[in-house]
């Protein structure tokens, strides 16, 4: 089978988990987002051997490799928020810079101190 058609088939199979998650939400009111339910369904289906890794691996790799493509329309939505292009936006960047440095440092120090690597 050609690579492209294999990817399309596998992406279709991953859709089964999306619709199963939507189905579950209709029956039991789970507060989790649909995609997270789908993620757990796919993980446990793999873990319990209900489906084989090869059936979804290539399709999943394609979806994750092209992930940025699927956000572009949402990113275009920024046009409705002109305040981002002013002082508020600049402030947000400084907030991100400071907070990201704090997270990097905290995580790094905690794991370096308490994590025991076995390799």
């Amino acid at each position: 089978m050609k690579k492209a058609s294999r990817i399309i088939l596998q992406v279709a199979l991953i859709h089964v988990f999306l619709y199963a998650a939507i189905g579950i939400e209709l029956i039991i009111p789970v507060p989790l987002p649909t995609t997270i339910i789908g993620l757990f369904l796919l993980f446990f289906s793999l873990l319990f051997g209900w489906i084989k890794l090869e059936w979804v691996e290539e399709g999943g790799r394609w979806l994750l490799a092209e992930l940025l493509l699927f956000f572009i329309p949402s990113a275009v939505g920024i046009i409705d928020y002109e305040e981002v292009f002013g002082l508020q936006g600049l402030g947000a960047i400084v907030v991100i810079l400071l907070s990201t440095a704090v997270v990097l440092a905290t995580m790094g120090l905690i794991v370096e101190r308490f994590g025991v690597s076995e390799s």
């Binding site: 979806l63 329309p73 939505g77």
Partner: peptide, 26 residues
């Protein structure tokens, strides 16, 4: 109109997010 036309691309975000299960499984 652009947003309405983008449904196909935005839709694929769902299966893409679900695919994060694959690296975790591996």
């Amino acid at each position: 109109e652009y947003q309405e036309g983008s449904v196909f691309l935005t839709h694929l975000l769902g299966p893409a997010t679900i695919s994060f299960a694959i690296p975790v499984y591996k």
